[in-house]
Simulated scan of single mutants.
Amino acid sequence: MRFVKRTGPGTRLKGKVVAIIAANEFEDIELLYPFVRLSEEGAEVIIIPVKKGLHPRPADPSKPVTGRYGTPIPLEVFGLGERYVVKELAEVSPDDIDALIIPGGFSPDALRIDESVLDFVKRVYEKGKIVAAICHGPQVLISAGLVKGKRVTAYRAVKDDLINAGATYVDEPAVRDGNIITARVPDDLPEFCQLIIQALLEKP
């Protein structure tokens, strides 16, 4: 599926491709806000659902990957192919994207024990692409071995995990260290997205 060509003032990220990866019980706003904000700037967004983790209630493997507050993937209120497309993990190459975003919620618990996800995250990072995680999302970065020696932040429940993995934890809304961007909670989404946009604009 191809994206619909759009015109308008939001063109700073035209030509950039951002992927958002999520398993069941992701934090809805931490997926929706970056999707809308980066799309507004002209980026093409790929959402990658991973059918792992807690099943949407009631448990049914045939149901779509769903957020804590009921947001399904595909997103019912946004036209598929208009501002985003949905792809399986195996269909996305790190070469095809400029940034990867990992929302929080309970989704990271499932993503961090999926070897295919960890391999993908590591390859995105190694290619110098932006890897951004918010709230519990940095748990995936820990399991991928990407936080040692890095300045990072996260939801405070993840603080000790980050320190034990060799990171320097800082209590700031959003932090960038190289091509890793992290943030604490939904209230920090504006700062999180500003850092992502800034990082993408630096890339030719």
Rank of each mutant, 00 (worst) to 15 (best):
L162S: 02
Y155R: 11
V147A: 01
V158Q: 01
A144M: 03
A133I: 06
K129E: 06
K159G: 00
F106L: 12
I130G: 09
D160L: 02
A132P: 01
R156F: 15
V140R: 09
R151M: 13
G104D: 00
L162P: 00
V121G: 02
V121E: 01
K122T: 05
D161C: 00
K148W: 07
D160M: 04
P103T: 05
Q139D: 02
G104L: 01
L111E: 05
E115T: 12
I134D: 10
S143V: 05
Y155S: 05
D114H: 08
A144S: 09
Q139A: 13
Q139Y: 01
S143Y: 13
L162Q: 01
V152L: 04
D109K: 11
L111Q: 05
E115F: 09
K129C: 13
V158H: 00
R112C: 06
P108M: 04
A133C: 07
I163E: 14
P103V: 09
R123M: 06
A154Y: 12
D114K: 09
R156H: 15
S107I: 10
V152R: 08
R112E: 03
D109H: 14
K150E: 02
I142M: 04
Y125V: 02
P108G: 07
D160I: 02
V117I: 04
A110T: 12
F120N: 06
R123G: 12
S116M: 05
V124M: 04
F120W: 03
P108C: 03
I134F: 08
L141I: 11
K127M: 01
I134S: 08
T153Y: 04
E115R: 14
I142F: 03
V121A: 11
Y155T: 03
E126L: 14
I113W: 12
G137N: 02
I113P: 04
P138G: 10
I113A: 12
E126R: 11
C135A: 14
E115N: 14
P138Y: 03
R112P: 04
K159R: 14
I163R: 13
K150Q: 04
I130N: 09
L141D: 12
A154V: 07
K122H: 13
K129I: 11
G128K: 12
F120L: 03
Q139H: 08
Y125Q: 08
D114L: 13
I134M: 12
A133T: 08
V158E: 00
K148I: 01
K150V: 02
G149S: 13
A157P: 00
A133E: 04
I163K: 13
L141A: 11
L118E: 09
V140W: 09
A157H: 06
S143R: 15
V147S: 00
I142D: 01
E126W: 04
I163G: 14
Y125A: 11
E115S: 14
A157E: 07
D109N: 13
R156P: 11
L141K: 02
K159V: 02
G149R: 15
R156L: 11
A133Q: 07
I163N: 09
K122L: 04
V152T: 10
R123F: 06
S143T: 08
E115W: 06
G149V: 11
G145K: 02
R156I: 12
Y155Q: 10
D161I: 00
S107T: 05
G128L: 10
S116E: 14
G149H: 15
C135L: 08
I130C: 06
D119A: 07
D114A: 05
V147F: 00
A110H: 14
